[in-house]
Computed example of a mutant assay.
Amino acid sequence: MADTAPQAFSPLSGHIGPVGGPHHAGVVLREVAGLSLINLRGDAEKAFAGHVETVLGVALPTAPNTAACTEGLSLLWLGPDEWLAVSEDGDSPALCARLEEAMSRVHHAVVDLSDNYAVIELSGHAARWVLAKGWPQDLHPSAFKPGQCSQGLLGLAQIVLEQTAEDAYRLFVRPSFAAYLWDWLVDASADVGVRVAPPDAPT
């Protein structure tokens, strides 16, 4: 019998357009595919935090709008008892199982959201300037820098924004808004030039 297992499908498939663009472009856009995205809920003051650190290898960030990062994994603060784990291993069922096993005696919630977000990376020397066209919060380096994250509306799309480097950001958006957000970023980048990088390729 032929293999009929469902195949992963990106909400940006067929929408991004041709890869390439001016080498001197102020902005580089790419889709980041294959991430494990896991929502964690629990009490940061109790055993929950210790179990999360044991499994993921990074301590829960407890300051609002901060991210704790290690190689291949980030933990984004979403609220006093809520975090988003972003792992590059791509095996979210296995990671969820490890978390559930470790926290079996602790009040918690572990939800796989890997199919519930599209992830777009925005980088380049004009990336902050482009975001500022639609982001309601202060993006000046003194107010928002690598190791920080936030939630809000960019254009009409609700996103989670993570700054991963001085000139690089990840935008987590619901699949139904992914194409809209991509087009918004392309349009907002028209003044500085935009280059499209292959998914998961270095920028």
Rank of each mutant, 00 (worst) to 15 (best):
M1G: 09
M1C: 02
T4C: 08
P6N: 15
S10G: 04
S10E: 05
S10F: 02
P11L: 06
L12P: 02
G14V: 10
H15R: 11
G17I: 00
P18I: 09
G20E: 07
G20H: 05
H24A: 12
H24V: 05
H24T: 05
A25I: 03
G26C: 15
R30E: 07
R30W: 13
E31D: 09
E31P: 01
E31I: 00
A33S: 02
L35K: 01
S36L: 05
N39F: 03
L40S: 03
G42Q: 12
D43E: 08
A47V: 14
A49C: 14
A49T: 06
T54M: 11
V55Y: 03
L56H: 01
L56R: 01
G57A: 12
V58G: 02
L60I: 06
T62W: 05
T62E: 14
T62C: 09
A63G: 07
P64D: 06
N65Q: 15
T66V: 12
A67Q: 10
A68E: 04
E71R: 12
G72F: 15
G72T: 06
L75N: 07
L76P: 03
L76H: 11
L76G: 06
L76C: 14
W77A: 01
W77D: 02
W77P: 01
L78K: 04
L78R: 11
G79S: 09
E82K: 04
W83P: 00
W83R: 02
W83V: 02
L84E: 05
L84T: 08
L84C: 07
V86L: 12
S87C: 14
S87Y: 10
E88M: 15
D89L: 09
P93R: 13
A94R: 13
L95V: 11
A97D: 13
R98L: 15
E100H: 14
E100Q: 15
E101N: 08
E101M: 13
A102P: 03
M103T: 03
H107I: 06
H108V: 13
A109M: 13
A109I: 11
L113T: 00
N116L: 10
Y117C: 07
A118R: 00
V119F: 07
I120T: 00
L122R: 01
A126D: 08
A126R: 07
A127P: 02
R128H: 10
R128K: 11
W129G: 12
A132D: 09
K133Y: 11
G134V: 05
P136W: 12
P136E: 13
Q137W: 14
H140V: 09
P141Y: 15
S142W: 12
Q148K: 15
S150K: 03
S150F: 06
L154Y: 08
L154H: 09
G155T: 05
G155I: 09
L156C: 09
A157H: 13
A157G: 07
I159W: 10
I159T: 06
V160C: 14
E162I: 02
T164K: 10
E166R: 13
D167V: 10
Y169E: 02
L171T: 00
V173C: 04
P175G: 07
F177M: 13
A178T: 04
A178E: 04
A178H: 00
A178D: 00
A179T: 05
Y180N: 07
Y180K: 03
L181I: 01
W182L: 06
D183G: 06
D183A: 08
V186C: 05
D187K: 09
D187H: 14
S189P: 06
A190V: 04
A190R: 08
G193P: 06
V194N: 00
P198G: 08
P198N: 12
P199D: 08
D200T: 05
A201M: 12
